[in-house]
Structures are given as structure tokens and as C-alpha cells.
Write a protein that binds this DNA or RNA. Structure first.
Lengths: 341, 341
DNA sequence: TCAAAAACTTGTCGCGCGTAAAAAAATTAT
DNA sequence: ATAATTTTTTTACGCGCGACAAGTTTTTGA
């Protein structure tokens, strides 16, 4: 295709036989020019190697085609997966997504929003850290840039929130666990970084009470985002001091569950739903690795697909000026039965 | 700090009492102006809310402060971790890193390099897909942009390659496994996507022969990057058809090993180094999840730290015009003894 | 102290493109 | 065919900054 290098739009316009402003219009929105001229431009695009200078393009445009994607931690395969999904949708719609990871630090999250502002993005998809986030900084950012929150909600901030119906997650799995064995106790961190954890706890309590059981919550120490290690270390301690009151443990999330499974293994406690097992363990999220634990982890799958699709669609609607009022869209989870519970 | 919004450098220069060209110099390199003027500028920076327009800055600069980081797959926690490490080093040196993931697809890898070229980056740190990569496209890119390869080498392409001494990995762990039990067979994919796999196989063969054992290689089918699933499915089949000839299995990488552990569990085969276990399994990489498998995975740790540090330093040296000849820097692995072998 | 060197100021140009207004051309409708 | 409408062209300006040259001030060093 591209043979000769063309250095600017002026030159390219001359070569394609179209005026520069029209070529400019084409690059802003190919659909805004007549079909016949679009074809001529695209024919020239095949012949010559020209791409508009991205910096010059964005300099005078109030709104760029940039989309920011911010997640708490790309190292967590859950976020990596949903980010990938969102990325693809943005590209498919002609936008330029850029991925940022807060790495679990509120300071860094603010830095990212700061950087992002200078990129003049058309919109941002933000999964906040949660409790640790600098709420006012994020609020200020959302006032300036169309932002859709996902995964973790901050009340009344942003255009919309798209996430999972966390209480439903807990209800669903509590129901399953009670039907198939002893009612579960709930295993979580004392100060969960993520607000979803609170909703899951509430959902657990409610579901237990509705089924006529007494909720039992095991809260363990631990700071930060190294959930597997916290699950292993503190789960191990809890097992040793007999703090786990049921033979069935529902973990606040899969990563804690993965750590707890390791703790069980280290303590020689057999996990599973067969009679020869001492304990059942379930998680929530359907983490990409949940399939490969030993035993494979029974969990609730988040609807990655629906969340990313809806988040992107909501953002694009807002960018196109068709924003509705701020709403909260929650997707239900799906029970994934494996061998751990 | 920032109270009044300042719209451009002209205005900011007037407010700070310094001429615009000098302010411009400051933003290019704070160290290039006299200490006293630097202080005056920084004082003004505290008082007023001004940040240079990033698009205008980069438009006329031949070299920007952008650094591209490209990994095959951010969903793999190994790459997520090394990317985070590299990112931090770039920021610390005053550069603006941007993370891209090829998502395992060569087309996407080329698209990323294409996008990257229009970002006029000062340099790029690239972990290629490997065998699947479009070699000529990458070569062309490297001719235009200072690029350091890491993790996976493409001969003679780029400024330098920084990675692990893969044959040493295999030698180290083969030695350990032979000292502590039956000599291992080698478990890998038939057509490994990553060239490191070949070097690990070679290292295995050499180490076995040096120790007077006959190498035994188990190659299984499987395409793509879903290594855990391949390890589980094909590992399970290999176990069933008794293709695993030793009671000790060295996997080409941790992700395959994680899948194989699941397969062992599914088939009721006890893994570990105690007498009551039927099989020992070891991996290579020290994947972030290797600590949490059941049993925890014995493996060889890549030196993340050294690799990312050296890759970044090599790139910066080249950017500063102090590039040496193309060299290949390999770091040794460290044996991490856990319970699986 | 005085000259040489370094740092800063003033002024001016250009980068590549967005954008706006008015005129011209092409398409569509009557 | 003519009028109404849509699209394109022409012309011109501006964005915010990098870069350069020539002149001025400050610092450095012996």
C-alpha cells in the first residue's frame, strides 16, 4: 500500500485531488463527507503512506478521540481481562484507548487522572481503588471529563456506574451452599479496600437470615492488595485458632479463596464437596485462575462481557450528547460449580 | 498550590518573571537552567495552575519524552509485574511510559508498533510475541525507533536484548531434581510460541546428558497462549496414556505447570516430594501464582528486578547517544524450593 | 578586577492541523 | 430546467510550543 511518504495533510490533499479542509473533515469523521470523495481519499490512502500527525490533530481540538481506561491493578488478571475487553470495543468504535493502572495506590490514581486531563480525552472508564481513593480529586476530575465508573462505585460521582449486583452474588452462592451442605461462614478482610466487599457481606447476612441461619463472619487483618497472601497467612491462622465456625467457607473474593486453599493445603485440610473432605471453600468473581486451583474453585462469575459492553456504550452515548441521568447498572452473577464446594 | 488557571506558556512566563524560551528550556530539562531561575519557576508553579500543552510540546520536537512498553499479554501476571517495574523506572527518570499489550496476536503487535510510531517515542521496550511475531515489521520499526527487546529475543533486532539465561534455568533445576530424586522428563508444548522454550529444552537436554541421564521430552498439542488450559487438558491426556516416563516432571514454564497440577489433582495423583506422593512437578519463571498452587510450585525465579532495570538503563543510554554495540544480557535464575518438587 | 563563559531576553519563524466564513460546485428536489 | 440544498473549495487565521539568532545580563575564574 503505502509507497511514498507524505509529510503533511496539505501534500496528501494535493495528491488525492481533494482540498485540505475536506481531508481534515474525513479524518475527523469519514462519514461526514460524500461517498464519492471518501472513496477518492481512501484510494489515495492506499497509494501513499500518510497518517495525520496525532499531536497537531489534538492540539486544536477541544475533544480528542482518546479514551482513558484506569484500573486499580493490571496485575490482577480480572482487571487485565476486563481492560482488554473494553480496549477492543473502543478501538472498534474508532477511539484510541490508553490503559493505566493505579497499582493500588491512591496517589498514583490521582497522578493518572492528572496525566489524563492533559490528554484531553473524549471520555474515561474508571475502576476506582475504592475506599482508598481520593474522593474529592476523582469528583473534580469527573466534573471536567465524561467518566463512567465501573467495578467499584463512588456514590454520585461520574456519569454512571456499571458493575455487578454484589448482594445477589452472595445470595446466589449462599443459597447453593445451604442447599448442598452446612451453611457457610463468611471470610473477609477486616478493612476491605473495595466497597463491593461490604455489599457482599450484607448480601451474605441477608441471605443467611432469610434461610433461617445465623450469619458468622470471620474477619482477618491485612492491608493492601496482596489478597492471596492475606488469605493464606490469615486464613491459616484462623484455621489454627478454630475461628472458622463452619465446615463451609464463603470468601469475599476469589483471590482470598485462592490463598485460603493454600492455607488448607499447608494445614493438611482436605477441601471439597465429597464426604472425605473436611471443608468446603467458595469464592466470588470467577477469577481466571479459579479454574486451576486444587480443587477447582466454586464461585460466582462476573459478567465481564456485559459490564464492559455496557460501560463503553454508556460512555459513548454521553460523548454523543445523549446522556441520561446518572444511573447504576448492575449485572447478575452466574454460579460456577466446581469441586471446592 | 494551583489557584489560577494559566492558559499558555507565554502567560506563565510573564507571571513567573522569566522569559518564555527559558521556561521552555526548564520544561525540557529542569537541570538545564540556573538554580536560581529554576527556583523562581518552581515557585510560580506552586502559585499558578499551569501545565504545558502536551500536544503542542510534542508537535515540533523530534524526540518526545514518551516511552512505549509493549508486552505480549498483560493478562499474564508475569508481564503485568515486569511492566509495572519498568513503568516506575521510566517515570522516575522523567519519561512518560505507555503500556500496550499485544494480546497474543501478531496483527495487534504490528498495530501497536504502528500507533507507537506516530507517538514519536524517545524509545520503546518491547517483549515480542516470539515465533508468531512479524519479524520484518518489527525490524523496520526498530530501525526507526530506539528499541530494547526483553523477555523474548529476535536475533539481531533492536539495540539490545535483556532477558534470562534460559539454559541456566533448566540446568539449575535439573541438577536439583536429580540430586533429590528421579531425573525429570521435560513437559512442553509441541510448537512453543516463545523462543525461550527452545532454549529451556536445550538446557534440559544438556544438563541431563552431563549428569549421565537420558533426556525424555513430552511434547503436547496446543495453540495459543492459554497455557494453563493446555497444561491441564494435554497434561491429563499424557498422564492417562502413560506418556510421562518419570515420576518427576519439569515443565517448560509455570503456567503449564499450574495446569498440570490441576490435571494431577483431577486424576487423583498426589504431587510433592514426600514419600506418599506419586509425582514431582517443577516449573520455571516463578509466576506470581506459583506460591499459591497446591502444593506450592518449586520453580526458577526470573530476576524481574535486574531485567527491568537493565532494559531501562540500556534504553536510556542509547537515547542519550551512549549506545554500545548490540549486546545480549542474560540474568541467571534462582532456585525457589517449594513443596511440589 | 576584568575578560571569558554561561545563562537569559527579545523577537521571529514555523510546525501540522482545526476551524470559520464566504464563494463555488455538485447534488437533489420541484 | 430551475430552484433549493448539500457538499466542497478557497482563503485566512490561530493554537501552543520548539527552535534559532542576536543582543543583554549574570556568573565564573584566574
Amino acid at each position: 500500500m503505502g509507497d511514498v511518504k507524505v509529510k503533511n495533510m496539505e501534500e496528501f490533499a494535493a495528491l488525492s485531488g481533494i482540498s485540505r479542509p475536506t481531508v481534515s473533515k474525513y479524518f475527523n469523521d469519514p462519514g461526514s463527507v460524500r461517498a464519492s470523495t471518501r472513496e477518492r481519499i481512501e484510494a489515495a490512502l492506499e497509494q501513499y503512506d500518510y497518517r495525520p500527525n496525532i499531536f497537531a490533530m489534538n492540539q486544536n481540538r477541544k475533544l480528542t478521540k482518546n479514551i482513558g481506561i484506569v484500573v486499580p491493578n493490571v496485575g490482577d488478571p480480572f482487571f487485565a481481562e476486563i481492560a482488554r475487553n473494553i480496549e477492543q470495543r473502543c478501538v472498534a468504535s474508532g477511539y484510541r484507548p490508553t490503559l493505566f493502572s493505579s497499582h493500588g495506590e491512591a496517589d498514583h490514581e490521582v497522578d493518572i487522572l492528572d496525566t489524563l486531563r492533559s490528554l484531553k480525552p473524549a471520555g474515561v472508564l474508571l475502576a476506582p481503588l475504592g475506599r482508598a481513593s481520593d474522593r474529592s480529586a476523582i469528583e473534580k476530575f469527573c466534573d471536567a471529563v465524561p467518566t463512567v465508573l465501573f467495578d467499584s462505585n463512588l456514590n454520585d460521582i461520574g456519569l454512571s456506574f456499571v458493575g455487578s449486583d454484589n448482594p445477589q452474588f452472595s445470595r446466589l452462592i449462599v443459597d447453593y451452599l445451604c442447599r448442598t451442605g452446612e451453611p457457610p461462614c463468611f471470610f473477609e478482610m477486616k478493612n476491605p479496600a473495595n466497597p463491593n466487599a461490604n455489599r457482599r457481606r450484607q448480601g451474605y447476612i441477608q441471605a443467611m437470615e432469610e434461610l433461617g441461619h445465623t450469619p458468622s463472619i470471620v474477619q482477618v487483618d491485612g492491608q493492601g492488595w496482596d489478597f492471596e497472601e492475606i488469605g493464606r497467612r490469615e486464613g491459616g491462622r484462623a484455621l489454627e485458632r478454630k475461628a472458622i465456625t463452619s465446615n463451609t467457607v464463603l470468601c469475599s473474593n476469589d483471590r482470598l479463596a485462592i490463598g485460603l486453599l493454600t492455607a488448607c493445603f499447608e494445614n493438611g485440610i482436605r477441601v471439597g464437596r465429597t464426604p472425605d473432605c473436611a471443608i468446603r471453600v467458595a469464592g466470588q468473581d470467577d477469577h481466571p485462575f479459579a479454574r486451576y486451583t486444587c480443587p477447582p474453585l466454586t464461585t460466582i462469575a462476573q459478567d465481564y462481557e456485559a459490564i464492559s459492553r455496557h460501560a463503553v456504550e454508556t460512555l459513548f452515548r454521553a460523548i454523543d450528547g445523549k446522556a441520561g441521568p446518572r444511573d447504576t447498572i448492575l449485572f447478575e452473577g452466574r454460579l460456577v460449580m466446581r469441586d471446592s464446594a
